[in-house]
């Protein structure tokens, strides 16, 4: 393979990353909008959001892409290939994402909502100040999964002639005839990007959990210069929780179970 062909692949990789980022931003926006709408008190809002989610979850992103790129122009609206691809991916994955948002919000113990009502917070304040901050850390792991799915889903955009990674690989394969080598290369490329995504999301998850006082991040431990005996019991307890991330995860997972009894996430954590 010549340098020119490698450059072609790298340019493809760059487009894949762009496509992933654009679609992810759109998908995230749509996911929060639709996820919140499905918990609305007004039935019409819930209904519209429900129709959106069912429709885009139930249609193939590939067909949607074809439709946006080839059928929409017949109605007098020509989208650039990159935007047609972004739109199709963003809307499809946004529909999946809205279920994550909805599920995480519903997993916040109802008692938290009641406590917020008891303090006379408005519905918007309840959502922004009490429910969302607690739901966000729960959303991060499933969102990480979805983001990797989305990365791999961008290969669909090659059918629109977007020169992303899969499309470039096709060109290189036609030029060299060496399928094994070129597909091995892009396999690794996809993997590397996916790996970066999962590691970044893991970091984000830890940060998010620490911010809600779930499992404090590693950096938040006590300075070592403090003699062990001088640590007060409360701080000692913190350090233990911080040391075992798995322990924190279990406690978090256990709290929705106690929700029916009116238990809070805090209750689960102490145990």
């Amino acid at each position: 393979m010549t340098t020119g062909l490698y450059e072609l692949l790298l340019r493809g990789l760059w487009l894949t990353v762009q496509l992933t980022v654009f679609s992810a931003v759109l998908a995230a926006a749509v996911a929060f909008l639709a996820g919140l709408a499905r918990l609305s008190r007004r039935w019409i809002v819930r209904f519209v959001a429900g129709v959106y989610v069912e429709f885009f979850r139930g249609t193939s992103a590939l067909v949607l892409m074809f439709w946006l790129f080839f059928a929409l122009p017949l109605l007098g609206w020509q989208l650039a290939a990159l935007w047609a691809g972004t739109l199709a991916l963003g809307l499809s994955y946004g529909a999946y994402g809205s279920e994550i948002v909805r599920g995480a919000l519903r997993a916040v113990p109802p008692a938290q909502r009641e406590a917020a009502i008891a303090l006379s917070f408005t519905p918007a304040q309840r959502m922004l100040r009490v429910l969302l901050p607690q739901a966000l850390p729960e959303m991060v792991p499933p969102f990480a999964n979805l983001l990797v799915e989305l990365l791999k889903g961008t290969a669909l955009a090659s059918v629109l002639g977007i020169g992303e990674l899969a499309f470039s690989a096709q060109l290189v394969r036609l030029a060299t005839g060496d399928s094994a080598q070129v597909y091995a290369i892009i396999l690794v490329m996809y993997f590397v990007v996916a790996f970066v995504i999962t590691r970044a999301m893991r970091l984000l998850e830890r940060r998010a959990k620490a911010s809600v006082g779930r499992a404090p991040g590693r950096s938040r431990g006590r300075p070592t210069r403090v003699p062990p005996g001088a640590i007060d019991p409360a701080v000692g307890a913190t350090a233990t929780v911080g040391g075992g991330t798995a322990g924190g995860g279990t406690a978090g997972g256990a709290s929705p179970g106690t929700a029916a009894a009116g238990g809070t996430a805090t209750g689960g954590d102490v145990a």
Binding site: A115, G213, T266
Partner: peptide
């Protein structure tokens, strides 16, 4: 104002 059986403090 109300105080609940399960405290219901905001954990975050």
């Amino acid at each position: 104002g109300m105080v609940f059986q399960q405290f219901n403090l905001f954990p975050h």
